[in-house]
Design a protein around this nucleic acid. Structure first.
Lengths: 315, 315
DNA sequence: TTGTACGCGTTATCAC
DNA sequence: GTGATAACGCGTACAA
C-alpha cells in the first residue's frame, strides 16, 4: 500500500520511505501492473479512437493531435479503423468497451444502432469528430461538411465556372463526402448552374482510380470547367489527367481539392484546396475528453472548428 | 465459471446452458472485463507498436498491415509515436510494459539503452521493423536501408548522372535515412563520381522545407544533375523547385523519391521512386508475433522484404 | 458438464 | 505517515 502511494502520490509519503521505495523499484525494475490497477480502480487510463482508415494520411494528423495531448496526461491510445463500415465500427466499439477504455473517439456522426445501444448501456465520455450534428452522442468536435461543399461551390461560382463535377466516393459509401456533395449541389442551385456531374470511385483515396475516373469524365463531358475533389490525392490525380489531355489548369479547368495534404502546395499547378484543421480536431477532442475524465463539469461540448479554402494556382 | 467457459469455449458447455448464458448476456449487455481477464490470465491481448511519427502516411500502411492481421486474431493495437527520439521511445516502451501488452513492435533497430534493459527484464515477443541488423532484439521484418541507398545511386549512375545530391534529414536525426545516404555514398565511390551533396531539412517530412532547401541547393550548385530524396513529399517539392527554375526533369535534373506515396504516380513528371513494402512489413510482423504468441516454436524470425525501384518519368 | 476455492496485483477504506 | 483488509472480475485447478 505504501508503495502504491509512493508511486502515485509521492507527497503523501515520508521522504525516507519514498527514497527506499524508489531504490527498490529501480533495483527490481518494478513496473506497476496496469491491468490490476485498472481492475481495482475501474480506470484503465486508455482512450480508444476509431478512424475510417489508417491506410493514408487523412486522419493521421488527427490521431497525432489526440495522442499529443492524451499521452502527457498519462493516457494511452488504442486505435482502430472501421474501413468506413458502421458494422465494423460497432465491432470495434464492443471490443474497446470490453477492454474498459475510459473514453472513446468516434469519427463521424452516423453510427450503427448497435453502437448507440452499446454506448447507452456503458455510459462513458465520447467525442465524435470530423462532422457536425444537432444531436451528438455526447461531445463533438468537427466542422460542417455540407458547408464545406457549399463554400467550395461558391468559390467555383465566384470564379466564373459553370459546369462542375464532383470526384469522390459515392455518398452511400462515405457519408461525410456525400455531405460535401450535397453542399456543392446547393451551391449549384444557388448559382444557377447545372447540377454537378459526378465521377465516383470505389476507393475514395486511390489516386489511380481517380486518375481513370476523371479521365473518363473529361472525355465524356468536354464542357466541364471545374472539378471538386473529395481529397487532395484525387485532386493531384486530376491534375495529371488534365495534363495528359493538354487541358490547361486553371485556364481551361479549375481543380479544387480537399484536405490540404502536405504536397498540395507543391504540385504543378499548386492545388487550391479546402483545409481542414485535422490536428486541432485531435487536440480539442482530447482536451474535452480530459476535462470530462478529470471529473469536470461535464459540458456537452459541441465545437465547430470550421475550414478554410486555400487559394493557390489550380482554381 | 460456466459463463466464462461458455463465452471463451462454447464447445465445452451443454447446448442448453450455452443458450441460457447467451440469452442472459444479450439481456444484460454483459461484456467481459478485459482488465480482469488480463490480470487472471496474464495475457492482455494487446499489442503495442511504436512508429516514429503519426503525422504523415509513411508508416500508416504498416500500421494498417499490423492491425489487419492482429484484430481478426483478437488482439487490439496500442499505438505510440516516438518523434524519432530514442528517449521518447524508451518512455513509450516503459508505459506499454506497465500495461502488460503481450508483444511489442518497434520501428528501427537502434534504441536507447533503457529500452534494451526494459526488454531484457520483461521478456516478451518483440519485432523490429523497417530496417535490418545482424543482432535484432528478437524478431525482425524489414529491408536494408543501406542497400536501398546504394541501389538508388546505381540507378542514377546507370542513367549517366554524375553530380548527385541527397535531400532529407541529417543522419543524426534519422538513422534509417542516414543509412540510405551511406548507401548512396558507397554507390558514388563505386561509380567514380563525386560524393553526393546534401540538403538537410529539420523536419524530414516537410514539403515546404524541402522546397526551400532544394531551391537553395540548385541555386548554389547548378551542376547538380540528380536528386535522391528521402521521401516522396520531399521529391514532389523538389519537382516544383526545379519547375520554378525552368529546369527540365528528367532532362536536366533527375529526381528519385522514396516511399512510393500514393501521389507519386500522378505528379508531373511522374515520380520515379523506391518502393518499400510498408503494408507487408506490417502483416509479416503481426504474423510472426501471432505465431510466437500462440506458443509456437519461437523462431527468431529475420525477414528481409526488400524494396523496388519504380521507374516512372522523373528519373 | 458444472461448480467451488483461490489467486492474479492493484486500490479504497479505515485503523493505527 | 503507515499498514491491514477487503474488494475489483476474471481464469486455473480441481472436485463433484
Amino acid at each position: 500500500m505504501t508503495v502504491s502511494r509512493a508511486l502515485r502520490d509521492p507527497e503523501r509519503v515520508a521522504p525516507a520511505t519514498l527514497d527506499a521505495v524508489r531504490r527498490a523499484v529501480a533495483r527490481l525494475g518494478y513496473l506497476p501492473n496496469g491491468s490490476a490497477s485498472a481492475l481495482a480502480s475501474s480506470r484503465s487510463r486508455v482512450v480508444a479512437a476509431i478512424v475510417p482508415t489508417l491506410m493514408n494520411s487523412v486522419y493521421a494528423s488527427t490521431v497525432h493531435g489526440l495522442s499529443s495531448v492524451l499521452r502527457p496526461a498519462g493516457y494511452e491510445l488504442m486505435l482502430g479503423d472501421s474501413g468506413y463500415d458502421p458494422r465494423a465500427e460497432a465491432a470495434l466499439v464492443r471490443s474497446f468497451l470490453g477492454r474498459r477504455v475510459d473514453a472513446l473517439v468516434l469519427t463521424g456522426v452516423s453510427h450503427a444502432d448497435e453502437t448507440r445501444e452499446l454506448l447507452t448501456r456503458h455510459a462513458l465520455p465520447v467525442v465524435e469528430i470530423w462532422d457536425l450534428t444537432a444531436h451528438p452522442i455526447d461531445m463533438l468536435v468537427g466542422f460542417s461538411n455540407v458547408a464545406a461543399g457549399r463554400e467550395a461551390g461558391r468559390f467555383l461560382a465566384a470564379r466564373g465556372r459553370r459546369r462542375w463535377a464532383f470526384v469522390g466516393s459515392a455518398p452511400a459509401q462515405e457519408v461525410r463526402s456525400g455531405k460535401r456533395l450535397r453542399g456543392l449541389r446547393e451551391a449549384a442551385r444557388e448559382a444557377g448552374v447545372q447540377p454537378p456531374l459526378t465521377a465516383f470511385v470505389d476507393d475514395g483515396m486511390s489516386a489511380a482510380e481517380g486518375h481513370a475516373a476523371v479521365g473518363a469524365l473529361l472525355d465524356a463531358h468536354p464542357s466541364v470547367d471545374a472539378l471538386f475533389c473529395a481529397n487532395d490525392a484525387l485532386a493531384t490525380a486530376s491534375l495529371r489527367a488534365a495534363a495528359d489531355r493538354g487541358l490547361d489548369v486553371p485556364g481551361r479547368l479549375a481543380v479544387l481539392g480537399f484536405g490540404d495534404f502536405d504536397v498540395a502546395a507543391h504540385t504543378r499547378p499548386a492545388l487550391s484546396t479546402v483545409r481542414i484543421p485535422g490536428h486541432d480536431i485531435g487536440t480539442h477532442a482530447a482536451t474535452a475528453l480530459l476535462a470530462r475524465l478529470d471529473g469536470g463539469p461535464a459540458p456537452g461540448t459541441r465545437t465547430d472548428l470550421g475550414f478554410d479554402i486555400v487559394r493557390r494556382e489550380s482554381a
